[in-house]
C-alpha cells in the first residue's frame, strides 16, 4: 500500500513539475543566453524560395534571409555556420516562433500591425521592401492585372497575399476563383500544371518561382504591384535584449554598406580614422557589450557574411540568377528606402 501511494505521489510530482517547467520555459526572458548555452541559433526559414531561403541537394542553405540568420549567428558565436534552419510553411511559421521551436523567424514575412500586436511577435526591421504582383501565361494575352476579371488564381494560404488578393478584386469590382495551397511548392506546381490562369505572390517571389517553371519564357509578370510588403525578421515579444540583437544586426549590415566596409576590407577598415567606422567596428565605444555581445560583434558579422549590398547582390541581385534590381532596397542616398539607424 505504501508503495502504491508512493507511485501516485511520484506521478503527481512529475506531472506538476512538467507543468511548472512548461511555464518557466514559455516566459523565458533570456533568449540570447539560451542560444549561447545550446551553442547554435535556430532560424525559421522558407521551405524553398530561391534567393531568400532554399536548401541545395547537400542541405546547404542559401539566400538573403538565410544570410541574415548567419549574420546574427556570427554576431553571437563569431561563426556564421552556427545557424540551423527549420523550413516552415507560411501557415506554420508564427506558431513555430510563438512556441519557441525557432529563435528568430527570417522568412520573407510581411510586417503588419495585427502580426506585430496580436500574435505575440516583434518585427525588428525591414530587410526587403516588396510588393505583391501577378504572373500569367503569355499566350493569354493579358497585359494588366485589371484584365484578370473571372480568372482563377493560385496562392499560398496563410499569407498577406491571400488577403491583398481579396481586397484588390473587391476594390476593382472583379470576380475571381482562388485556389489556396499550404506550401509555395504546391501552389506553383498547380499553376504550372494549368490549374490557374494567374499565380500571385510578392514580386521577388514571382521572379524566383518563374525559374522553376517548365518553360520560364512562357510566363510574364504583370506590371501592377497591388500592395506594400515590408519583409523582415521577427522575434517573440517580451525579450527586448534579443529583439535588439536582431534589430541592430540589420542596422550594422546597412551601415557597413553605407560606409563601404566589406567582407574583404573589414580588417583594413579597423585602422580607419573615420569616427563612424570606428564606432561601427567597435574600435571606439562598446556598443556590442550593451546588447550582451562583444565589442567586435560588427566585425564578426561583416567577416561572416559581408554587408547588406554584398548579401543582396549574391542572393537576389546581379550576382545571382534572379537579377533583381536594387530598386526600393537601394540605400537611402542611392534612391532607395534602406536607411539605418545610426550606431552611436
Amino acid at each position: 500500500m505504501t508503495s502504491k501511494f508512493a507511485t501516485l505521489a511520484l506521478g503527481l510530482a512529475v506531472g506538476l513539475a512538467g507543468i511548472g517547467l512548461g511555464a518557466s520555459g514559455a516566459s523565458a526572458q533570456a533568449t540570447l543566453n539560451n542560444i549561447k548555452q545550446k551553442g547554435f541559433l535556430q532560424c525559421g526559414s522558407n521551405t524553398g524560395l530561391a534567393g531568400f531561403g532554399v536548401p541545395d541537394a547537400q542541405g546547404n542553405w542559401t539566400g538573403l534571409d538565410v544570410d541574415y540568420c548567419r549574420a546574427v549567428a556570427a554576431a553571437i558565436f563569431n561563426d556564421p555556420t552556427k545557424a540551423r534552419f527549420t523550413p516552415l510553411a507560411a501557415k506554420d511559421r508564427f506558431t513555430a516562433l510563438q512556441s519557441g521551436e525557432v529563435d528568430v523567424l527570417i522568412r520573407n514575412t510581411t510586417w503588419t500591425m495585427s502580426r506585430d500586436t496580436a500574435l505575440g511577435l516583434t518585427f525588428t526591421g525591414v530587410n526587403y521592401y516588396d510588393g505583391q504582383g501577378f504572373m500569367v501565361r503569355k499566350k493569354l494575352g493579358v497585359a494588366s492585372a485589371k484584365e484578370l476579371n473571372g480568372a482563377s488564381i493560385c496562392t499560398q494560404q496563410g499569407t498577406t497575399t491571400e488577403l491583398n488578393l481579396a481586397d484588390y478584386f473587391r476594390a476593382n469590382n472583379m470576380k475571381y476563383e482562388v485556389v489556396a495551397f499550404a506550401t509555395s511548392d504546391e501552389t506553383f506546381k498547380a499553376y504550372d500544371t494549368g490549374r490557374c490562369d494567374a499565380f500571385t505572390t510578392d514580386a521577388s517571389g514571382l521572379y524566383s518561382e518563374r525559374l522553376r517553371a517548365s518553360a520560364p519564357d512562357d510566363h510574364i509578370v504583370l506590371p501592377e504591384i497591388i500592395s506594400k510588403e515590408p519583409l523582415g525578421p521577427a522575434v517573440r515579444k517580451g525579450d527586448a535584449q534579443w529583439a535588439d540583437v536582431v534589430k541592430w544586426t540589420h542596422n550594422v549590415l546597412l551601415t557597413a554598406e553605407e560606409l563601404g566596409v566589406t567582407k574583404a576590407n573589414v580588417d583594413q577598415m579597423l585602422k580607419s580614422d573615420n569616427p563612424e567606422i570606428k564606432r561601427l567596428l567597435g574600435v571606439e565605444g562598446s556598443f556590442g557589450e550593451s546588447i550582451g555581445l562583444t565589442k567586435d560583434w560588427a566585425v564578426r558579422i561583416i567577416k561572416g557574411v559581408g554587408n547588406y549590398g554584398e548579401i543582396f547582390d549574391r542572393n537576389v541581385g546581379e550576382g545571382s540568377r534572379l537579377k533583381i534590381k536594387r530598386g526600393l532596397n537601394a540605400l537611402w542616398n542611392k534612391g532607395g528606402l534602406q536607411f539605418a539607424a545610426p550606431i552611436r
Binding site: 501557415k91 508564427f94 500574435l119 505575440g120 494560404q157 496563410g158 491571400e162 489556396a180 499550404a182
Partner: peptide, 12 residues
C-alpha cells in the same frame, strides 16, 4: 485547410 490553415494563421 480553411480553419487550421488560413484562419489560424491570420488570427494566430
Amino acid at each position: 485547410q480553411v480553419f487550421m490553415g488560413t484562419v489560424l494563421n491570420q488570427t494566430g
